[in-house]
Write a protein that binds this DNA or RNA. Structure first.
Lengths: 139, 139
DNA sequence: CTATCCTACAACCAAATGGTTGTAGATCAG
DNA sequence: CTGATCTACAACCATTTGGTTGTAGGATAG
C-alpha cells in the first residue's frame, strides 16, 4: 500500500518534457487554444508576435511532450490537444498531494501516540543528523 | 461566467518558474523528499551524485518558484515544502481540464442542435480560414 | 581559540532554449 | 503551368540552465 500513489509510471524524461513544455507562456496559450478549437500551425503563428518557425518549434516541444498532436489536412497541419498528456501531468501533481496528505496523517498519528518509540520505523532518516546518512539512494 | 475558470490569477512569470521548477528530476525528488520530511541543504546534497553547490542551486530554483522555503536553524538551513505552490500548479492544470470539459460539452451541444446556425457565436474563429484572422490577440 | 561544518556566492564552462533568417518541398487556386 | 501558401528544416545567435571549482563567512564542537 505504499507504492500505490506512484502508479502513473512516467519516466523522468517524459516528466521533464511534460513540465518543460508547460514552462512557457506561449506554449501554455497554444495548449489552451487547441483545447478549445482546431488550429493549423500557421493559424497559431498568426496569433503571436514571433516568426512562424518559432511557433513551429513551440508546437514541436508540445508534441514531444505528448500534449498535442498534428494531423496533416491538405497542405495544412492541424494541431489538436492530446488530453492524455494533460491528465498525466495532473496525476503527478495529485500524487504529490497524496504524499503530502499522508505526511499530515502520519504527523497526526505521531502526535496521537505521543510517546511510543517503535524502533526502526520512526520518521527519522529525514533530518540529517550528521555524517553518513544515506547517500545517492534517491537518484 | 467565462472568466471563472481562470480564478487562480497567476502571472506568466510565476507559472514559468513553477513549471520550470518541476521540469527536472532532481528537483522533483527534492520536492517529494521535503514533503515527507525535513532536510538541511547539505542533507539533501548528500543524496545526489552532484556537488553541494549544484543542489544549492536546485533548492534556489524551487524557492523562487515558491515550492519550498528555507529556515535557518543553527548553522543549518532547513528546507521544507511549500504546499501553496504545489496547489497552484494543480489548480492551473485543473483549469485546463475544465476548459477541455467545456469544449466536450459544447461539441455535444452542437451535435444535439445538429443544424441551428446561431450566427456570430459558433465555434468558428478557431480554424484558420485564411487571411486576417485575429492577429496578436492572445499574447 | 581552533578546527570543522554548513552555507553563500562568484566565476567559469558546455549544452539546451528561444528566437531569428533563409532555403526548399508540397499542395492548392487560377 | 504559375504563383501563392503552408510546412519543414538547417544555420546561426544570445541567453539561460545545470553543472563545476574555489573562496569566504557564520555557527558549533572540543
Amino acid at each position: 500500500m505504499v507504492v500505490d500513489q506512484l502508479r502513473t509510471q512516467l519516466s523522468d524524461d517524459e516528466l521533464d518534457r511534460l513540465f518543460q513544455a508547460f514552462a512557457d507562456a506561449t506554449r501554455r496559450d497554444i495548449v489552451r487554444r487547441v483545447t478549445v478549437g482546431e488550429y493549423s500551425v500557421s493559424g497559431l503563428a498568426a496569433l503571436y508576435a514571433m516568426s512562424f518557425a518559432a511557433v513551429q518549434k513551440h508546437v514541436a516541444v508540445l508534441e514531444r511532450a505528448s500534449l498535442v498532436s498534428k494531423e496533416k489536412r491538405g497542405r495544412e497541419q492541424i494541431v489538436r490537444a492530446n488530453h492524455d498528456g494533460l491528465q498525466r501531468a495532473r496525476r503527478l501533481l495529485d500524487d504529490y498531494e497524496v504524499i503530502w496528505r499522508q505526511r499530515a496523517d502520519r504527523i497526526a498519528d505521531l502526535l496521537a501516540e505521543s510517546a511510543a518509540p517503535e524502533p526502526g520505523e520512526t520518521q527519522a532518516g529525514a533530518r540529517t543528523t550528521n555524517k553518513s546518512q544515506g547517500q545517492a539512494e534517491g537518484n
